[in-house]
C-alpha cells in the first residue's frame, strides 16, 4: 500500500518539481568554478563537485534553520527540533527498509520528510489536546522515533546498517545532486512561507492571546510552524546529521538574542551567525578532515560564547542612557 503511494511520488511529479533545481545547481557549479579560478582555493576545486553541493546546502541551512529557530526558541520550543530530527531518522529507516525489501529506489530523505511532517502534526495535536507543549510528550516522540528507526534498520536483513552513519552524523561527500535539488525545493517552501506569514508568526510567538483576539488562528499558525520545522530538520540532516541538526535551530538564535535589540535585527543576525558557522565549519572540517556537522556546531557554540560577551558589554554601555518617560496624553487621543 505504501509502495503504491511512493511510486508516483518518485516518478513524474517529483522530476518536474526538481528539474529547475538542477538548472540552479549547474549555475552554482559554474559560479564556484569561477570563484576557484579567482582564488585558487582547493576547497572549491571543480574536481570536487560534491563540495560545491555541500557548500550550497550549507548556505541554505544557514538561512532557513535560524529563521525557523527564531520563532521556536522564543516560544520555549527549542527541543522540538531534536524530537523531529529523531523521527526523521525513523523516516530514513523506513526509506531504506522499503528500498531493501521492495527495491523502490526512493530517496530516504523523501520518506524522512513524510514521516517527520506526520510526527510534527502529531506533536501539535497532542499539545492542542493537552493544552500545553510538554517535555514528556516531546521526549516520548523523540525516543519512539529513534527506537523505530533502529528496529527497522536491524530488521533490514543486516545489510544496510553500513549506510546509517551518514544520516546519524551527516556527511559532506554524500550530498547527491538529487538531494541538493530536494533541499532547494524545501528551501523555497520554507523561506516563501516565512516571508508571507512573518507578521502573523511574530504575533503568535510574542503574545498568543492577543494574536487570537486579533483574529489569527493560533492553532493553524502553530501547525504551519511545526511542519516547517520538520522540513528544515530533514533538509539540514544531510550535513548536520540527526543528532546535531537541532543545534542549528537553536545556537545561532540564542547568540543573536544576546546582541540584538529588535526582532528584525535578531533574524538578520542569527542568519549571519549561522552562515559564519557553516562556512567556517565546512572549511575547517575539510582541511582538518573531521566530521562537518560536529565542527559546524562547535564553531556555532564558539560564536555564541562571543555573542554573550558582546551582549554584556553592550548592556553596560546602554545602561548609562535612560530616556525621559513622557506623560500619558489623554487630550491628544480624545479631542484631536
Amino acid at each position: 500500500m505504501t509502495a503504491a503511494l511512493l511510486v508516483p511520488l518518485q516518478a513524474g511529479l517529483l522530476d518536474t518539481l526538481l528539474a529547475p533545481m538542477y538548472g540552479i545547481l549547474e549555475f552554482w557549479y559554474w559560479l564556484l568554478t569561477q570563484l576557484y579560478y579567482l582564488t585558487g582555493l582547493e576547497l572549491i576545486s571543480p574536481q570536487y563537485k560534491f563540495m560545491h553541493r555541500a557548500i550550497l546546502v550549507g548556505l541554505c541551512i544557514g538561512v532557513m534553520a535560524p529563521l525557523i529557530g527564531t520563532f521556536l526558541v522564543h516560544r520555549q520550543l527549542a527541543l522540538i527540533g531534536d524530537a523531529l530530527a529523531h523521527t526523521a531518522f525513523a523516516g530514513v529507516a523506513v526509506g531504506l527498509f522499503l528500498n531493501g525489501v521492495l527495491s523502490l529506489g526512493v530517496s530516504p530523505y523523501l520518506t524522512a520528510v513524510v514521516v517527520a511532517v506526520i510526527a510534527a502534526l502529531l506533536i501539535e495535536l497532542i499539545s492542542e489536546a493537552t493544552d500545553a507543549y510538554n517535555d514528556v510528550s516531546m521526549a516520548i516522540v523523540l525516543s519512539t522515533g529513534f527506537a523505530l528507526g533502529t528496529v527497522l534498520i536491524s530488521l533490514n536483513a543486516g545489510g544496510l546498517a553500513v549506510g546509517i552513519n551518514q544520516y546519524l552524523f551527516g556527511n559532506l561527500s554524500t550530498v547527491s545532486a538529487e538531494n541538493a535539488a530536494i533541499l532547494l525545493v524545501l528551501f523555497a517552501i520554507i523561506v516563501g512561507t516565512i516571508a508571507l506569514t512573518r507578521n502573523q508568526l511574530l504575533y503568535v510567538t510574542f503574545d498568543e492571546t492577543a494574536a487570537a483576539v486579533s483574529g489569527l488562528s493560533v492553532t493553524w499558525y502553530n501547525r504551519v510552524m511545526v511542519m516547517l520545522t520538520a522540513l528544515v530538520v530533514v533538509g539540514a540532516m544531510q550535513i548536520m546529521g540527526v543528532i546535531l541538526v537541532a543545534a542549528m535551530l537553536v545556537v545561532p538564535v540564542a547568540g543573536a538574542a544576546q546582541v540584538s535589540r529588535s526582532f528584525s535585527e535578531s533574524l538578520l543576525v542569527s542568519v549571519v551567525l549561522a552562515e559564519l558557522a557553516v562556512l567556517l565549519g565546512i572549511g575547517l572540517s575539510y582541511y582538518g578532515e573531521a566530521t562537518a556537522g560536529g565542527v559546524i556546531v562547535l564553531v556555532a557554540v564558539g560564536i555564541y560564547v562571543v555573542s554573550v560577551a558582546i551582549g554584556k558589554v553592550q548592556a553596560r554601555v546602554r545602561e548609562d542612557t535612560a530616556p525621559e518617560l513622557g506623560s500619558i496624553d489623554a487630550g491628544d487621543a480624545g479631542d484631536a
Binding site: F206, G215, A257, E265
Partner: peptide
Amino acid sequence: DGARIGYVAQHASASKEMPITVREVVRM
C-alpha cells in the same frame, strides 16, 4: 475581524528573552 478589537492583558504574556522593540510591539 481582529481590527475591531484592541486588547490589553493583565501581564505581558510575552517571552522574557525575546529581542523586540517597543515600536515593533506597537506595530502589531
